[in-house]
Design a protein around this nucleic acid. Structure first.
Ligand SMILES: [Mn+2]
Ligand SMILES: [Mn+2]
Ligand SMILES: [Mn+2]
Ligand SMILES: [Mn+2]
Lengths: 231, 231
DNA sequence: TTTGAGATTTAGGCTAGCCTAATGCCCTGT
DNA sequence: ACAGGGCATTAGGCTAGCCTAAATCTCAAA
């Protein structure tokens, strides 16, 4: 009887939890997560990733194809989704109940996610009314481990003349989030693309109040939108 | 320039934080914390404590007198009080804002105390109105690192006929806390000792509503009281 | 088909924290 | 004064996670 089949499993370490989340995010579009992508995301050296991948495949949390990359097993995926639920509930709670700025919650949640109990997360979720999205618009997995998969398009890909709803923005960069909030570019806002400059130039959008914003290509690639019905 | 004088210090680890808290509690009546007392409190083997004491004295957090025990340095005391503030604010918050039972908060706080930021603790404290006592009646250190030192007496030492206010109870045992809550023996309640059986027998107290309780010696030793003014 | 750049893994090393077994210190009781 | 019990420390070993340097694999370009 080996480690992968022995039960009950010892609790996952902080590191393991973060590795699993990384693999989840890196494989969300399908395919493998590569050693160097994981290393970059977690800010560790590639050999550290190789070492951890070895341990994680021995415990049955990932499938490792040498020199190709890794994918989560069903068990690994379950654990990753649980961590993502924790993270996003925490971000939501800090924002709604403790007056946190949406630019600051990610860093705090990155630590707390490893220390909170299941019970605390469910109490927070309950206090919030079982939110479905975190403050940055990312879907919150259910306690049962299900997550909404929406097909979103980046603002940079929206044709001039089309209207969209901004659904989700990346949550890792505090300054970027502050800037977006200043500009009123927050999830839920409706935008109409009124122009786009050539050569990967900025996209110009009109907000509901008639004001316009000039969004550079780099930023436009990080604003995930859903086309508005009937457009 | 050695480790003790180099600055800024690296953040303390989870283990170090728990060791410092233990030393604080074990020296709160003065004197030294012994290796075996620390080992018992943290549920580790004595040699693990010896090893950690070596590291902590090298970093200037404790003073170690070989074969005698340890005491906190001012720096170690500051760190310990910060952790105790975190712990007690967390217990208060979980109880007041998330409907936690007072018997369950200790275990949760024991983990969270290592993951929360200073900022989060201050937001929680603010949301609670800067509480001065945790749910078990223990004083909460201020953000500046000051803690109230009250001279409390255990119920077992109160003379028959005297009245007291129950101020503080130990928070480590969930079942004990549940039992105390059932009996109405919670901090703030006024008690009059109406009898005590000999040979370390139980203490009989009357509550404000006229009902009585029979409190065994073991429990009476853990109920910390303040004599009522003018008695 | 060969080759080389780039990615990955292996080799070897380090620290923090834990353990058990062996040794050493301290103090009390005779 | 000293023996012995009990506590503390030292010795030696282990795992998780990290690192750098060296070896190895892969794949696309020549
Ligand atoms: Mn986040
Ligand atoms: Mn994390
Ligand atoms: Mn507690
Ligand atoms: Mn703790």
């Amino acid at each position: 009887m080996n480690a992968a089949t022995r039960s009950p499993q010892p609790p996952l370490t902080r590191s393991v939890e973060d590795y699993l989340k990384s693999v989840f995010h890196l494989t969300s579009q399908g395919g493998f997560a590569t050693t160097s992508d994981i290393a970059e995301m977690l800010e560790v050296a590639p050999p550290s990733v190789s070492g951890m991948m070895k341990r994680l495949s021995e415990t049955g949390l990932i499938e490792h194809v040498p020199y190709r990359g890794v994918q989560l097993t069903p068990q690994g995926r379950r654990a990753a989704l649980q961590m993502i639920r924790r993270h996003r509930i925490l971000e939501s709670y800090l924002t709604s109940k403790l007056g946190y700025d949406w630019g600051d919650v990610h860093v705090e949640a990155e630590q707390l996610e490893h220390a909170v109990s299941e019970k605390l997360i469910e109490r927070m979720a309950d206090a919030l009314g079982e939110p479905r999205y975190d403050p940055h618009g990312a879907p919150i997995p259910t306690a049962a481990g299900e997550i909404e998969e929406a097909e979103l398009v980046t603002l940079a890909d929206i044709a001039v003349g089309s209207s969209v709803v901004l659904r989700e923005v990346g949550d890792e960069n505090t300054e970027r989030l502050h800037y977006l909030a200043e500009q009123g570019l927050i999830p839920g806002v409706q935008l109409t693309v009124i122009d786009r400059q050539p050569f990967n130039g900025p996209t110009i959008v009109r907000l509901g109040d008639g004001t316009t914003r000039v969004v550079g290509q780099e930023l436009a690639l990080l604003l995930f939108c859903r086309p508005v019905d009937g457009e």
